[in-house]
């Protein structure tokens, strides 16, 4: 007799648990306000990334096209993947001494793992993270970027 009742109580509990499960999906079906999908290409204009978002490594330039990089190469040494190449140049300064400046700060985006060591260890805070995240390109060579803009120079007094 016990097994007889167990048979029916099993059915009852089973059906009950199934109905509870169906109530969850049914509730979400009738509550379209809870939709979490982001309409990505449409919301591109007002898509705000978080300020610390690591999109790509950039060299910070001010409005006068000045940066703070003196080409010391600490970022290159700290990079675990060799995605940074610093090509320094030597110029003769106003005081007549030869000094090192950055010629090209080459950044291989394709190799970067965004560990943040270059940005953290830069002694003059010349590097930062950009918010750009749409990095898809048709040619791999486009992933190699020169971070210091053409014609830019170092801020006086940083070196």
């Amino acid at each position: 007799m016990n097994s007889f009742f167990k048979y029916f109580s099993d059915i009852f509990h089973g059906v009950k648990s199934l109905l509870i499960g169906m109530s969850v999906t049914g509730r979400y079906f009738f509550s379209p306000g809870q939709i979490v999908t982001q309409q990505y290409p449409e919301n591109r204009k007002n898509l705000q990334m978080f300020e610390r978002f690591k999109g790509e490594v950039i060299m910070l330039h001010d409005e006068n096209n000045l940066h703070r990089c003196n080409g010391c190469g600490i970022c290159e040494n700290n990079c675990p993947n060799g995605s940074i190449e610093v090509i320094p140049a030597r110029i003769t300064g106003e005081d007549g001494k030869s000094k090192r400046i950055i010629d090209k700060h080459i950044y291989h985006l394709g190799m970067c793992t965004f560990c943040g060591l270059c940005v953290k260890n830069c002694p003059s805070n010349a590097l930062g993270f950009g918010q750009e995240f749409e990095h898809a390109v048709f040619d791999r060579s486009k992933l190699t970027k020169v971070l210091n803009k053409t014609g830019s120079s170092i801020i006086k007094g940083v070196e």
């Binding site: 978080f50 610390r52 978002f53 690591k54 793992t113 965004f114 560990c115 943040g116 953290k120 993270f129």
Partner: peptide, 27 residues
């Protein structure tokens, strides 16, 4: 993931710890 992105800058592979502390203070 959003909480992480705001504090560490990454959603998935944060590399947030560093020997001696964390890379940045919390947001």
């Amino acid at each position: 993931l959003d909480i992480w992105e705001e504090t560490t800058g990454s959603r998935f592979l944060q590399s947030y710890n560093c020997p001696g502390g964390v890379m940045q203070d919390i947001h």
